[in-house]
Design a protein around this nucleic acid. Sequence first.
DNA 1: CGAACCTTTGATGGCACTCAATACAGGTGG
DNA 2: CCACCTGTATTGAGTGCCATCAAAGGTTCG
Lengths: 255, 255
Amino acid sequence: MRRDIHNADVPTLCQACEARHRGICGALDPEQLVQLGRQAGRREVEPGAELIAAGMPADGYANILSGVVKLTSLLPDGRQQIVGLQFAPDFLGRPFAKSSEIGAEAASTVRLCTFPRSALEEMLRQSPGLEHRLYEQALRELDDARDWMMTLGQKTAAEKVASFLLLLGRHINPYANGFANSFDIPLRRADIADFLGLTVETVSRQLSHLRKAGIVTIEKNRCVTVSDLTALEIHAGVVPTDPQRTAARRNSGST
Amino acid sequence: MRRDIHNADVPTLCQACEARHRGICGALDPEQLVQLGRQAGRREVEPGAELIAAGMPADGYANILSGVVKLTSLLPDGRQQIVGLQFAPDFLGRPFAKSSEIGAEAASTVRLCTFPRSALEEMLRQSPGLEHRLYEQALRELDDARDWMMTLGQKTAAEKVASFLLLLGRHINPYANGFANSFDIPLRRADIADFLGLTVETVSRQLSHLRKAGIVTIEKNRCVTVSDLTALEIHAGVVPTDPQRTAARRNSGST
DNA sequence: CGAACCTTTGATGGCACTCAATACAGGTGG
DNA sequence: CCACCTGTATTGAGTGCCATCAAAGGTTCG
């Protein structure tokens, strides 16, 4: 059954919003969207803007409409690790928590659809499907986090940088599901380094290697085009290279 | 209001089970516990037993009654990363997923309370509070995973090992909330190495350093006693050491 | 007691960090 | 439009931490 006949009831701002399809708002009916929309506000922030301060009580929540948000964790001595990247139409915030030790900061220009804590809690009471959506996003983020732990703990610098480009290509476009062959890196080298657990210099060197190897082209330090996806995947260590070992894995895995 | 008056209705096996308090079963009433209990089974497995095979369809779920489970992620070339440790009374399994790329393996001897996929789904339909509990565990695991990303990405070998001991001390005892000063390490050195993104040799060396520094004592390679918790925290990098920098952080944070 | 496994310790080398200098991009004002 | 300036990125040289290789010491079984 198509819901589009009710589209007239959906707030104008929500009509084209991806959060209504792949985001949490998909759990809400038109009436609830109107109700939430009344308390919601749009906001556009510049790169570097702090969206959630670590250790502070979170005052509200938001959906990411466009742009990239980095989740950061800080050590007392100043070392920083980016523990996650969030893309449209992700939900932003930490439900049920007094305060999180994790901060959120705009990596690129970010457009947000914000709503107060109470509005979300009200919606949660009304619609059990909403919590289910939130749960599913949490599970997805958990999978992503654990994937990245593999990258941080086991991979070499070259593999880390290649993995990063693969990650970006998969997530940069909120509408498509496949891999984007060409995109702008929404992070500075310093951010990439903090995400990969490397230094700026090492990141730069590895990008140069990929460029000289003809696997990617980079323009103006930001715009990347992946010309050889398979090679990139090999460099990321996510695909078997040794045929012998591959065969062995296959056999043991199919039992 | 005390629920203990209903304890007569609670299955005998559940009476002393920690999952009924801090685990997911706390969301169920006695009748539902009976219903779930009918389909549940107890299982005890030895260290090294595979509980969930990566890439396989998960046939069921379980609560951990005692012992430690390691969640592992594997690269095609054989490199392994332990992406999480789970303790009693954690819920084990990946709801709503066809199959997970993450495997689960008993690190120590593990006792489980298992139930089939359908039983959980039935419970989820009956009790919305259950999904809420699952969601909260997922959020907790997400926080833990991100904490550990900081450890993997930024910390030195010495800090990693110290952080590992702190993690164990906090989680090893399912009944207490504080820090256990003495406990058995439920992992072999090779597992610790895979968890920390180090080699066995480096782990061993760093443990020796902590021992020679008088911060911990280790007997029979497994039993650890933390004699200087503050020093351990300093070595883990989780506590400010430089007073000047500490003051600076404090000031900038309070604005 | 002996065998298998695990852990520790030592010697050496390589990858990524540090330090330092140069090149580039984007914005502002002349 | 160009000169300037700031923040950002690249490239190079040297060092140090941790991995690798190798061997000996412990522990836990049968």
